[in-house]
């Protein structure tokens, strides 16, 4: 028997696979189509202080090896989320990570404060990297000083709950951004968000998406995710990292862990095929067994030095 459980922030993840924030929504539908208790964790879709309609269609366009999305953080706002949506996850036996996004530092802080009182929220993730909104999101995530400020302010609001920052790969130096988040008191990092990209419609001469830019996800972004995780792990040997981007099978999870991730998020792959997360978990077990690793810890301790 191989042990695929992972311990992070004193929380036990049954396995290293979590659903990443975004594609699988806030839980309402996910509890119908997934057996969340079989997963290491579930991250809710980013919630904002006020409700948001999201961006006008088209919101999706296919690209080679994935999709380009421009959803624009459609959600019902934090009050509705806390009253009507989040309670559905209360008794689900998995690590519950709630993702929040804001236009201002104050909005981030207010939301963290609201969530801090809810005992079954295990981890709060600050989305500092959404590519599809005008304010906050990636415009915060590109600024090292802003990242530090958001992390510092939010950590004060939630001294006990683990706080993670989800960072973008669309920055000059992800290590610098990660470093500022850590100086700001962040407990862990999620790397990466969808990657900025564009697709032109050659019939009309315009981009497919109205905002032009969208966020790429799917297997096409996996090498970017791996590289970002690797760089941050090399700089910070101890910071907890959720690696995410383009995971489609067990080997991808192993690759992320070898690059330095503690836990691995799946977004796109899980919503294309709802059975994919369990298949991935089985493949991780088989890999460990075949390669004579007794546990994820064993795999981590035996991975090559990251330098």
């Amino acid at each position: 028997m191989v042990d695929i459980a992972v311990e992070l922030f004193g929380l036990r993840f049954k396995n290293p696979v979590v659903l990443a924030s975004g594609p699988s929504g806030n839980g309402k539908e996910a509890i119908e189509v997934f057996d969340l208790a079989k997963l290491g964790g579930f991250t809710t879709k980013t919630v904002t202080w006020e409700p948001r309609q999201g961006n006008p269609p088209p919101r999706l366009v296919e690209i080679y090896g994935g999709i380009l999305n421009s959803i624009g953080l459609e959600n019902n706002g934090i009050e509705c989320f806390i009253k009507e949506e989040l309670p559905l996850l209360k008794d689900v036996d998995t690590v519950k990570i709630v993702s929040v996004g804001g236009d201002t530092v104050e909005e981030f802080a207010q939301m963290v404060e609201r969530l801090n009182d809810i005992p079954y929220v295990d981890v709060i993730e600050l989305n500092l990297s959404c590519p599809n909104v005008e304010n906050g999101g990636i415009s915060f995530g590109k600024s090292p000083s802003m990242v530090r400020k958001v992390c510092e302010t939010c950590k004060k609001m939630s001294p006990k709950k683990p706080l993670m920052a989800k960072l973008s790969s669309d920055v000059t130096d992800v290590v610098e951004i990660a470093s500022e988040a850590i100086k700001g008191g962040i407990d862990g990092l999620t790397l990466i968000n969808s990657v900025q990209g564009m697709r032109m419609n050659i019939e009309t001469g315009r981009p497919y998406l109205l905002r032009g830019v969208g966020g790429m996800s799917g297997p096409c972004i996996k090498p970017i995710g791996i590289w970002n995780v690797y760089q941050v792990r090399r700089a910070f040997p101890d910071i907890p990292i959720i690696g995410t981007g383009g995971v489609m099978n067990g080997e991808d999870v192993i690759e992320y862990i070898m690059a330095g991730a503690n836990v691995v998020g799946i977004g796109f792959g899980a919503i294309v095929d709802f059975d994919l997360p369990y298949r991935v978990i089985d493949e991780v077990k088989v890999f460990l067994k075949e390669h004579k690793y007794g546990s994820i810890r064993d795999l981590v301790s035996k991975r090559g030095d990251i330098q």
Binding site: G22, P23, S24, G25, K28, E29, A30, E32, V33, K45, Q53, G54, P56, P57, P58, R59, L60, V61, E62, I67, N69, I71, E74, F268, I271, V272
Partner: peptide, 26 residues
Amino acid sequence: EEMMVCGVGMCKGCAVKVKEGDRISI
């Protein structure tokens, strides 16, 4: 018809604007 990925309401890809009284919702 809209582009969609999940098919069950999670990914919010296939949004439609609707009016319910004076309120516009998605």
